[in-house]
Amino acid sequence: MNIFRLAGDVSHLVAIIILFLKIWKSKSCAGISGKSQVLFALVFTSRYLDLFTVFISAYNTIMKLVFLVLSYATVYLIYMRFRGSYDSENDSFRVEFLLVPVTGLAFLENYAFTPLEILWTFSIFLEAVAIMPQLFMITKTGEAESITTHYLFFLGLYRALYLANWVWRYHTEGFFDQIAVVSGVVQTIFYCDFFYLYVTRVLRGSGKMSLP
């Protein structure tokens, strides 16, 4: 464990908690893409299947459980508890355009052709694109509440910190996970445009982020 990975995991946890509390307290999921949240729940489900077969550390197990519980709870809030406020009309990204290529690629590019390894690879590729429905929804509605932008900031920051973690691990222990690194770079690049808007609009300007 290094400071970059710990900061990344904390940033990821903060993002997930920000979103959950925003929906829970405001009793509304307006402006939130339910599709992205379903994809994130799918990412955790397909990645953490080794939860009960491999014990790495208490931290690892606890964080996996927290991510799984919070992501499913968020999906529950959106599609069940506060489904009246779910903006399905603007949450119109065709997720099959993500799932098909990601599934195909996971079968082509993986470390081993075993169910667990293919599902892990699927989760890595899917995580890189899972935020697309949410970013698409923001461009469609033309704005995002400030809390939603803070959620996206910490979510984007988490994988950027993981990139630093991989640089650190490469230089200190020769660790290099090509699939995770390439996918992590792609994932972080998708946030660049948002990061620019976040700094110029939200941090400096008004609380809301309204797109041009």
Binding site: R5, D50, N60, M63, Y111, A112, W120, N165, D177
Partner: peptide, 10 residues
């Protein structure tokens, strides 16, 4: 098939 790395990351 590369050596199976420990999946110690989240």
């Amino acid at each position: 098939e590369e050596d199976m790395k420990p999946k110690d990351e989240l």
